[in-house]
Simulated assay, not measured.
Amino acid sequence: MNAPLELMAFAGVLALGQFSPGPDMLLLTRTALKEGARSGVLMASGIATGLTFHAALAITGMAVVFERSAWLREGMHWLAAVYLAWLAYQMLREWFVHVYSGARYEEVKPSSKKGAFVQGLLCNLFNPKVVVFLAAVVTPFLAGERPGWWPWALWAIVVIEGLTLWALWALVLQAGPVKEAYRRAGPWIMLAFGVAMIGLAVKIVVGVL
């Protein structure tokens, strides 16, 4: 297989993993629906910034060290579980307030640039499964003799594709029918996202214990 086809195959595998249900997708979807395109794109930028770190670890082989260091792995899992539980609390509290106040569920004022970006960054950085997934995907594409630029190309694909696809997803969610459906069922969508975040946090804790 020639280099362009290999890189395309690598990008395709990454896209499948990127849109599998996980903390990044849930948080970005919730933010883009509730706060609009600007906050969604900023959060996508934060997630992509986290990917710069995870991709570097995976490509340099540090993911193996991460997996073999029990204290580091468990510490990151606990951090991830606490952060997801905190996000779940925020979503469930918002659902409770809207349901029991009887207020109309509208799009809210976007978060600050720093807020949306940092939330996306922390959500990605505190997810230890990202570096493990990237290591599994990258390893076959690093086998054999490769030119010096090859690892950099893989790293760039991870980061650029992550930013591009997440930003496009945030923009797609701004479509009229999607936004109208969210206005009608917003609190219940928020409840579903909160419960999903709790489920992810519990899954991480169970994996540590």
Score class of each variant (00 low, 15 high):
residue 71 W to T: 15
residue 196 A to K: 09
residue 71 W to K: 10
residue 37 A to H: 06
residue 68 R to C: 10
residue 148 G to A: 14
residue 36 G to N: 10
residue 165 L to H: 01
residue 18 Q to D: 06
residue 141 F to P: 02
residue 87 L to T: 01
residue 107 E to W: 00
residue 144 G to K: 09
residue 174 Q to F: 08
residue 187 P to W: 01
residue 40 G to S: 10
residue 153 A to T: 07
residue 107 E to L: 11
residue 72 L to D: 10
residue 162 G to R: 06
residue 119 Q to F: 00
residue 168 L to M: 09
residue 34 K to D: 14
residue 7 L to I: 04
residue 175 A to L: 10
residue 83 Y to C: 05
residue 29 T to E: 10
residue 185 A to S: 12
residue 5 L to T: 13
residue 157 I to D: 03
residue 139 T to Q: 14
residue 69 S to K: 06
residue 38 R to A: 08
residue 58 A to R: 08
residue 36 G to W: 13
residue 167 A to W: 05
residue 169 W to Y: 10
residue 133 F to Y: 15
residue 89 Y to D: 02
residue 171 L to C: 07
residue 167 A to R: 06
residue 44 A to C: 07
residue 202 V to C: 06
residue 182 Y to M: 05
residue 16 L to F: 11
residue 76 M to C: 13
residue 9 A to E: 02
residue 3 A to P: 05
residue 48 A to C: 09
residue 181 A to G: 15
residue 61 G to M: 08
residue 4 P to K: 09
residue 67 E to I: 13
residue 156 A to C: 02
residue 152 W to H: 10
residue 156 A to I: 01
residue 200 L to Y: 05
residue 69 S to Y: 11
residue 204 I to R: 05
residue 140 P to L: 07
residue 178 V to S: 00
residue 164 T to V: 14
residue 64 V to D: 14
residue 37 A to Q: 09
residue 34 K to Y: 04
residue 94 E to N: 08
residue 164 T to Y: 01
residue 167 A to H: 04
residue 157 I to N: 03
residue 80 A to E: 04
residue 67 E to W: 01
residue 21 P to H: 08
residue 70 A to Q: 15
residue 91 M to N: 12
residue 61 G to Q: 06
residue 162 G to K: 05
residue 121 L to Y: 13
residue 105 Y to W: 15
residue 103 A to D: 13
residue 179 K to M: 10
residue 115 G to E: 12
residue 38 R to H: 09
residue 140 P to G: 03
residue 56 A to S: 12
residue 54 H to N: 13
residue 8 M to S: 13
residue 95 W to M: 03
residue 186 G to H: 03
residue 108 V to N: 12
residue 51 L to T: 14
